[in-house]
Amino acid sequence: MYELKSVTQTYERRGQTVTALDHCSLEIPDNDFIAIVGPSGSGKTTLLSVLGGMLAPSTGEVLLDDESLYNLSIEERTALRGEKIGFVFQSFNLISWMTACENVQVPLMLCGQSAEQQRERAMELLDRVGLADRTEHQPAELSQGQQQRVALARTLANDPQVILADEPTGNLDSETRQQVMKYLTEFHDDGRTIVMVTHDQETAAFAKRTIRLVAGVTQELNIADAA
């Protein structure tokens, strides 16, 4: 379970203090599916970075399974990220010079699995996202939808407890968007927690809860509001 306790994040920009998150408190139970919506610059990505253990908040506390993320050292947080958190990015962030299979192998390599184990697991995951015949293709040889599916397979590689998705359908057409959301829903149904930042109401509709973020302040929307 995730818990944000009065998290504030401020930046200094050209001598001015910008507040990205303003005493933000949020509870995300296990196996929740949250969509975070809001205008540009409202702090959505900052919230995702804080949840991902990549940006220490100025004040407040972030707990994951009752463990304070930012009381851990950088190396411990990195290890925890590799173990419990998966990421999905708007622009997929695949490594351009690696094949689909190698891209999926990366998280497995980072957690020390053998080359055989990595490859076996990568093939299994690519098969799951319908890319068993594209395993040796580089990202440039794949469509946008296929690239996002490789990225989804990579996200699942270490069987993360939480998936943080940053505009996962932002670069996709409507058909591919549906496909990607179907996979994310499947991952949620597997028991994972999903926190998704999106601009798109249709995409947000796949979530169980929607949080609106305005000027760094969270507001829980009911389903009717979100629609």
């Binding site: 990195t78 990220r81 590799g82 962030n93 490594i95 351009s96 990366v106 980072l110 990579r154």
Partner: peptide, 16 residues
Amino acid sequence: RKEIGTLMALGASRRF
């Protein structure tokens, strides 16, 4: 930069 950031997000340590 983006590749390095991605690796770090995926669990790559500074040492790696």
